[in-house]
Design a protein around this nucleic acid. Sequence first.
DNA 1: CTTTCACGCAACTGGTCGGTTGCACATAAC
DNA 2: GTTATGTGCAACCGACCAGTTGCGTGAAAG
Lengths: 101, 101
Amino acid sequence: MVPSEVFAALADPTRLEVLTRLASGGPATATELSASMPITRQAVAKHLVALDAAGLVERHPAGREVRYTFDPGPLGDLVKWVENVGDTWDRRLERLGRTFG
Amino acid sequence: MVPSEVFAALADPTRLEVLTRLASGGPATATELSASMPITRQAVAKHLVALDAAGLVERHPAGREVRYTFDPGPLGDLVKWVENVGDTWDRRLERLGRTFG
DNA sequence: CTTTCACGCAACTGGTCGGTTGCACATAAC
DNA sequence: GTTATGTGCAACCGACCAGTTGCGTGAAAG
């Protein structure tokens, strides 16, 4: 897996805000989201493209509007990666403890 | 907490590589790390500054060299944030299930 | 004391990114 | 059919970022 892509998708505060709004406030369109945010609809749309590319969001076209849904999948992969790094770190510490303890 | 800073620190593949090397290979200096990487020592040093600012790494100056250590702390905060988002999402789904189920 | 080596700082460059404006297109409403 | 509304696409701009080179400094080695 290449977690840096997901990390990059979550790195921008505005994009993180968009994602949390979808997660806590439910599905919404770019226009709806931009209405209560200090940026343009196109800016929100770009963020949604990035989130969609990272798999954190699902597109649901309906008529002339596109509704977006939060997808927690990649976040699970992220946690797995973090836990893996933590485990190798713990094993390092344990190995050092066995050598010098 | 502002997790976007930690996410930003992990967003770059090279910086992620530096961090995982410290986590799995143990403490090292910028010069040592750059020796087995396709970039300059200064580039590695910049990444270490960024990782230090995010709290993911500890500086240990010793004589004329500076040895860096992996610090898993912020990763724990990250997991907590992810689990929090996941929980609000689950509560949303459960609330919808109670309304329409 | 002289030399060597590790580091930090500063300047520069190419590329990417977040955001904007403007426009064209398609769908819905009247 | 005409008007209004929601999207997408393209161009542009300023800022930031990863990486480089060059130089100065300070500690260790000889």
